[in-house]
Design a protein around this nucleic acid. Structure first.
Length: 438
RNA sequence: GACCCCAUCGUCUAGCCUGGUUCAGGACAUCGCCCUUUCACGGCGACGGCGCCGGUUCAAAUCCGGCUGGGGUCGCCA
């Protein structure tokens, strides 16, 4: 095989969304083609007319593009039924297949089949469980193994990279290549992605489709990066690597042979790394459009306003969906105290906060520097340690015990909201003082 | 059950092909310390692994065999 005309393909079936495992197989195909200046062909295996759906097809194509890949050709098996029939008839004529019950059966003899796998070396089958295989179903549509062979041969695919769940299909397919006189492609079977509980990544495991990750606010580059690292490594301890960089050094033979367990923790970390590496403007645009799509942002919110709030959380965000929780207190009219703030709510600091409010009121320019100065002064006058006032105030302003720096938070919130929310907690404290604990 | 694939820290992996340079390196997670108004980020550190048994060899994570364990496939689904 001349590396100049390497032709690989990814062959999804539009009977579901593009999932994590398929995306990774696609990535490996694409990377290998790019690395060897070959062609990457997309073949839509829509022979199951019942289950194939247009929305899935669109979703798959969109996901592939979203992840940063492109293709040189795209073919649809549903438009090639005549071709499959033609080759089936040829096999019948040559006595290698026979028509039975409306279907066409390919007949074969048991024999030793050797696969020279680019990834795992020789795989030898000494026997096969059957001696015939349906190639054309009684409804006239081809079976997977047959259309796959015909198409790979006719499309000049000379290297088949697919999941290892296809290893056992390979000997049957090789027999068909031989019967039809086609030249057999190289094969590379890559391992499957496993769920944390061991088995194959299934519906039981949270999100499996690429679109779900997109919706959760994972960045396409981060997801591609993570998927790439699942079974492949640049060997120099790099964890953050782009498709462009990988293209130069990727080889299918370097892909691991072991199934890899999918780790959401690591994906989140990588995603966080990408988020943290963005400029605030880039992040604002990204977060803005994400939150806009989710209809989370209030109408007519200025970009500068989004930028301020988002700036508070960039370093604390591992996926965009996190922003919905962290930004909520900034838009809500009323602060909702989260359950774990109970200890703070039980210790009234009415006089102290009233004193603080007076100090804040006289700040002309409500910037974090001025706020900090006034805040520290108030603590000093009250004889309180900074943190003893910071925590209750944070709860009063955001309803949570954790979050961005308090003074920045106050600046973003603005003087009016800050004072209003401080008064609200004072009111709450007075109420429990008057009526005892609720 | 039959056939096939695989086997380094909890997880992803480097090392294995070309045995000694490795009392096995990195990352995530976990734990601790530092920074600090909390969380996060960042910095530092800790914990933790060559599945087992044989063989080859002066020497094995690295080569060979067996066992065990995990996974996949046995559809007129793809």
């Amino acid at each position: 095989m001349n590396s100049q005309n390497l032709r690989v393909r990814f062959a999804p079936s539009p009977t579901g969304f593009l999932h994590i495992g398929g995306a990774r197989t696609c990535l490996f195909n694409w990377l290998y083609a790019k690395h060897r200046s070959g062609k990457f062909i997309l073949r839509i295996e829509d022979t199951d007319l019942e289950r194939s759906k247009k929305e899935y097809l669109e979703e798959i194509l969109e996901s592939i593009k979203w992840l940063g890949m492109d293709w040189d050709e795209v073919h649809f098996q549903s438009k090639r039924f005549g071709l499959y029939r033609e080759y089936a008839d040829r096999l019948i004529k040559e006595g290698k297949a026979e028509q039975k019950d409306g279907a066409v059966f390919f007949k074969y003899q048991m024999q030793r089949i050797e696969i020279d796998d680019l990834n795992r070396g020789k795989i030898i089958f000494n026997e096969l469980p059957k001696n015939e295989e349906v190639i054309i179903k009684s409804d006239g549509s081809p079976t997977y193994n047959f259309s796959c062979v015909i198409d790979d041969a006719l499309m000049d695919i000379n290297c088949v990279i697919r999941g290892e769940d296809h290893i056992s299909n390979t000997p049957k397919q090789i027999l068909m290549y031989q019967a039809l006189g086609f030249s057999i492609p190289k094969y590379a079977h890559v391992p499957l992605i496993l769920s944390p509980s061991g088995g194959r990544l299934s519906k039981r495991f949270g999100a499996t489709s690429i679109r779900e990750y997109k919706e959760q606010g994972y960045l396409s580059k981060a997801l591609a990066n993570y998927l790439l690292l699942l079974g492949w490594s640049p060997k120099d301890n790099r964890e953050i690597i782009s498709l462009q960089e990988a293209k130069d050094i990727f080889d299918i033979k370097d892909v691991n042979k072991t199934g890899a367990v999918f780790s959401l923790d690591k994906l989140e970390w990588i995603n966080g790394e990408y988020i943290r590496s963005m400029s605030l403007d880039e992040f604002t645009d990204l977060a803005g459009s994400y939150l806009g799509e989710k209809s989370f942002l209030p109408e007519n919110l200025e970009r500068e306003e989004i930028k301020k709030i988002v700036g508070l959380f960039q370093v604390r965000t591992s996926k965009l969906a996190d922003l919905i929780t962290s930004m909520k207190p900034y838009f809500d009219q009323e602060v909702i105290y989260s359950p774990d703030t109970q200890d703070v709510l039980e210790k009234p600091l009415v006089k102290e906060l009233q004193f603080l409010i007076e100090g804040l009121k006289i700040i002309q320019d409500f910037t974090k520097e001025n706020i900090e100065q006034g805040f520290r002064k108030a603590c000093e006058d009250l004889g309180l340690k900074l943190k003893n006032l910071v925590h209750p105030v944070r709860v009063a302003l955001t309803g949570t015990k954790h979050g961005a720096g308090l003074f920045e938070t106050m600046e973003v919130l603005g003087k009016d909201k800050v004072i209003k929310r401080l008064n609200k907690i004072i009111q709450y404290w007075r109420m429990i003082q008057d009526h005892g604990k609720i």
